[in-house]
Design a protein around this nucleic acid. Structure first.
Lengths: 339, 339
DNA sequence: TATATTTGCTTAATCGATTAAGCAAATATA
DNA sequence: TATATTTGCTTAATCGATTAAGCAAATATA
């Protein structure tokens, strides 16, 4: 049966007739403890199946070795891949991560932050919910004196570290690609302008058109929730234009998929009649017909870099953060939808 | 700037010239504390921005109010939906959850369990990795005296609570549906038999064939890793049979999608030439062409029930678990691929 | 040989919050 | 009025692990 009581340092100390302090030091290979004692302690620890009490050591050391992570949702390939790589780096450094989802809700995000602070995490790595405009709950993290690292969805005003891809340049890469294929009327199903990354994609799109001497047509720029359903709606709207676009650049793969469905249903040939490019390189982009051109966001690198940024702060004594952006180049994955 | 030091109960006590014990009781609305004192304490707590130290209270109370969750991966719709609903129930009861991913790896699963036990969680809710055969790490949870609840991917031998759908019956529902459509040679791209749920689906498939007086053809039953790639391979293999199947029942939507791609590439009409049914009701099933018939696993209910099962144990003094299965009926969502 | 240093531990305090035990004052009951 | 009960707190111990300070014995150095 189960040992009702967990083994503590004291149990080991009693068994070996030494002080709990000596046991603690032996477990941490303190140089002032003899090898004989260390061996004995470790042997007895194993015998009694000793598991250190994290709460006690965290309380005493003022450090929980936990990192909180907030993502809008885990069921996208991008975020789950970021998480996986983040975790690998942090685990190696002796940290464990607590994953929370905001479900794109501002309220939930606030609650998540409270939970994480309450759990005494040593730092928070977050990607902001779509709904979030007010930043006071993020300020709370900073005023707690623990590092805050943002990725993908960030905000300059917080003056903290940020890791993400170059959204502005990505739009350029996409537009150049479409122009090269002969497209003249490129529509953009974009996200809400208030979210920085989507705003950057819109700006990039506009500037890239200018650079290629193409006219800016406001009817070809639509703001969208970027869900599959909204992608469908916005595509239907675009098809009703007198002068139809010959290419669609959607700021998310889900919206692009919605657009693709509408195009397929209307027997509009992709890529011959209208070319289509998505964003995010979700696994399904290679699965649909025709397969979809998209932007890969280097989720692995983002996860690793965000984790390492946290570790840099963890190694220091005091946390002094400033706006420090690490911007990665995104990669265009060309597939059938734009060939 | 940030308050370098966090506010503690003692700070409030000093300010009000009462004992920390009284402050603690006031914060918890102890009946033996006067309303006057309670009000004063709460006012000062707000003034000083007091945040209780979770580590200290958890250590003292021997209860962390954290629940650990282990899933194979978060980027499937099923698991992310389970997590969302689980979290909602647990949050309401004052618990927070720590999500970890095993990535289907036995080794990672062991590490996750160690992490969660180390973090002093009050219970663990888990869905087992595909690789897992040895159960000793799960036994470790039980011997720690905290409740263990399994869902979706469980194991009878552990003698703990389990929540899942009726895989055996689901296979019957699928086979009946295909038989009704006139199918005579139904192939099954199944998972590995050692995983209980997949074994049950295979058994259900075989028994349902028998029940419908259809012959059992071993060449129509293939064991698969159930990934998209493996679904493709297994479908290609099935197409090479002298006597081709007229229906495919895949034990995962990803494998079914692989099969669908191969069928589409070979210009085999789905559903007219071969009918296709998947499992899991992943969002893409309604997005592909033709849309795919699949089984919905009631992720919301599973998440809620698993959470409530944990809460039942949390309310009790001692944890005495036994094999206790809660089996939900799954629902067949009929789409174009089998119409 | 006398002093300094190192080794290998122990003692006691601490991290914050909680709680059993107890005490004095206020109030209720006989 | 005398005793019992309740109210509103305080005191002190505790949850385990860690660590600063310190001490005696062993060893090194002059």
């Amino acid at each position: 049966m189960a040992n009702k009581k967990r083994t503590t340092l004291k149990d080991i100390a009693v068994k070996l007739n030494i002080s709990p302090a000596a046991v603690s030091k032996a477990m941490h290979d303190d140089s002032r403890i003899s090898d004989r004692t260390k061996e004995a302690v470790k042997r007895v620890a194993k015998e009694l199946n000793y598991q250190p009490n994290h709460l006690a050591s965290a309380l005493r050391k003022g450090k929980s070795n936990l990192v909180g992570v907030i993502v809008p949702r885990t069921n996208s390939n991008f975020f789950s891949s970021v998480l996986e790589n983040m975790e690998a780096v942090l685990n190696k450094a002796g940290y464990n991560i607590i994953i929370t989802q905001s479900n794109e809700s501002f309220e939930k995000e606030c609650k998540n932050i409270d939970t994480l602070l309450y759990t005494q995490v040593d730092g928070i790595i977050a990607s902001m919910a779509n709904e979030t405009v007010d930043l006071s709950h993020y300020e709370k993290i900073k005023s707690n004196g623990i590092p805050l690292i943002l990725f993908d969805r960030g905000e300059n005003d917080l003056n903290v570290d940020y890791v993400g891809i170059n959204d502005y340049d990505s739009s350029h890469v996409i537009v150049e690609h479409l122009v090269e294929k002969g497209c003249k009327r490129i529509a953009h199903i974009g996200g809400y302008r208030r979210t920085r990354i989507f705003n950057n994609r819109i700006r990039g799109y506009v500037d890239a058109l200018k650079k290629n001497k193409l006219p800016i047509d406001d009817s070809l720029i639509v703001e969208s929730a970027l869900t599959l359903e909204d992608g469908r709606l916005k595509m239907e709207k675009l098809l009703k234009l007198k002068d139809r676009p010959d290419a669609i650049y959607a700021a998310s793969d889900y919206a692009a998929l919605g657009a693709l469905q509408v195009l397929n249903e209307n027997r509009i040939n992709v890529p011959n009649d209208i070319r289509l490019v998505g964003f995010g390189n979700e696994p399904f982009t290679s699965l649909v017909s025709p397969s979809m051109t998209s932007i890969d966001q280097h989720s692995k690198d983002i996860g690793r870099i965000a984790a390492n940024t946290f570790l840099d702060y963890a190694a220091k004594d005091d946390v002094k953060q400033s706006l420090n952006k690490i911007i990665l180049d995104a990669e265009l994955i060309v597939r059938d939808s734009s060939k």
